[in-house]
Structure formats: structure tokens, C-alpha cells
Amino acid sequence: MQTSMALLMIGFLGACTDNTVDPPRIQTVADVVTANSDFSILRDALEYAGLTGDLRQGNLTVLAPNNAAFQASGFADAAAVRALPTSTVKSVLLYHVLGFRIPASAFTVDKNVVIPSLQGGNVYISKLAASSGVSVNNARITKTDIQAENGVIHVIDRVMMPPTRNLLEIAQGNPNLTYLVAAATRAATSNPAVVSSLTSTSSAFTVFAPTNEAFIAAGFPSIASIQAAPAETLAAVILNHVLPGRAFSPTLATGNVAAAGGGQLAVDVSSGVTVKGKGSTQAAKVLMADMLATNGVVHVIDRVLLP
């Protein structure tokens, strides 16, 4: 009995002095988001949309807006997100999820690299130089390579909205762009390319869209005055506001760019974003940037860009 008790004590003491430490468990993407207080709005949005479980499986890249990103995009808190329909929140969140792992080392110097999202639409990744940061659509990546068991998280500074309308439909849906729609419609009677570029399903364009006030300041006091203007003149003016391709604000740089009408536009990003037509005396300020369309990008400006 004493021998058995001694062996039992030796075994017990050996177990007590075992210094083996289990390795830390690697968390899933959902676990990482849940545990990080800087993702509290995102965490609540995922729960509201019923997507928390989806981020615990697969092999994913999540472009994760932090709380500051939600606030910069007009969502003050989780309640503001929950004020939207569940289906809308789900669509927006899935637009931030890619179906495979993309580490920061895979971001090469390129512009508007097309990557499909789990929402169904594409995101556009840009890195303008080896030493520059990386942007996705209108958002900048502020932190990379937060590792998870089933993927990687890159933190972004804006919430990206998936496109649902083409360029023309965005203009038609904005009551402050009715003069632009009238001008494009009138211009198309001379040059059908004006409207076809705004509705294209095969090519992408960037439109600097002057407000109604901008047209009034340029000498068009009413829509009737636009409809009475020579169609050829309006076509030249409208095409001077269009750039081939998608030009998100993080990819704009100070310098000249060629407009679709053949003219040159002077872009300056030293203090905000301004753009100036060759025939303009003053640069236009971008009032609202990066409205993503199915076929391009819209930036609302406060002046007409004369060719």
C-alpha cells in the first residue's frame, strides 16, 4: 500500500511540475473582429446581417472598415447601420469580403486590379508606386495582414458601397444634377457617344459632374436655356467632363489628364481635389467624390469645365 501511495504521489507531483503550455488558438476572422473594440460597429453589422457565421469558414480576405471608417462614411454608430434594411447591410458587408486570401505582399504596382467580391460586384485595387500605399475603390488600406485561421484582414478607412446604377442613372437620381442630365440629353442629338458612354456596359468612365448651380454660373440660367443651346457645343462641353476608366480619388494625382473629348484637364490634389478645364478661368472643387457606378465613377463638382 505504501509503495502504491508513493507512486501515486510521484505521478501527481510530476503532473504539477509539467511546464508544457498549449499553443494559443488561432482565431477565425469573425473571432478577430469580435475581439477588437475598434471593429464594434462592424461586429454589430455582421450580427445584424446574419453573417458572423460565414466569417468563421472558407478562406477569405476581409477589407474591414473600423469604427472611424463607418463614421467617416456617415454611420455614426451601430444604430445608424441597423436603420438600413437587413438585405442592404448584408450586400454592403459582402462587398468587403473576397473569397480567397490576399496577403499584403500580393499588392503589386498596378491600377484598378479587378477582384470579385462575395457580394457579386467587383472591387478595384490600386498601388501607384512601390513606396505608396494601397487603395481599394475610394478606401485606403491603413493596416494590413491581421491573420486569422481562415483568412486575412486588411483595415480600410471608408465603407465601400456596391454599385447598383450606371453613370446616367446616378445623375438622374440626383436632384442637383438635373441640368447635367438635360445637357447630356441635348448633346446626344449631335453626338450619341455622350449618352452611350454614360450607359455603357462594356467600358468604364469617370464623370466630373457639375451641379445645377455650376451650370447657372456658366451662363445657363434654366433647363430651357440648355435645351436651346447648340447640341455640338454641349457635346464638346460634356465630353470635357469625362475621363476614360475609373479614377477614384485616392488614385488621382496632380497633373494633366486627357478628357474623352480630346481636351486636357488640370488636376490638383495638394489641398482637396480640384480640376480645371483649359477654357476655364477658375478650377472646380470636388464637392462629393467617388460615387461608384456599374460602369464608372462620379465626382460632383462646383463649376463647369470648359474645353
Rank of each mutant, 00 (worst) to 15 (best):
P221I: 07
L234C: 02
T142V: 13
A129D: 13
A139R: 10
Q227V: 12
A184F: 02
A183R: 03
R158K: 14
L128M: 00
E149D: 14
I216P: 10
I156W: 07
R186T: 12
Q227K: 10
S196W: 07
S132L: 14
A183V: 03
N212W: 07
K143R: 14
F220G: 01
A217C: 05
S131P: 15
V195A: 12
G219E: 03
V155W: 03
S196H: 05
H241T: 11
I170R: 01
H154T: 05
A129N: 06
I226K: 06
P162M: 01
A139Q: 06
I156E: 02
I226C: 02
P162R: 09
V237W: 02
L198C: 05
A204I: 10
N240F: 05
S135F: 01
V207S: 04
L243R: 05
L128A: 02
V155P: 02
V155M: 07
S203L: 07
A171W: 08
S190G: 13
V155I: 13
L128T: 02
T142S: 05
I226R: 01
Q147K: 09
P163M: 10
F205E: 00
V194F: 01
V134Y: 01
S135I: 05
T189D: 12
Q227D: 03
L239G: 08
L167N: 06
P175C: 12
V195K: 03
A129S: 13
R186D: 08
T211I: 04
T144R: 09
D157H: 05
P221A: 14
A188F: 00
H154A: 04
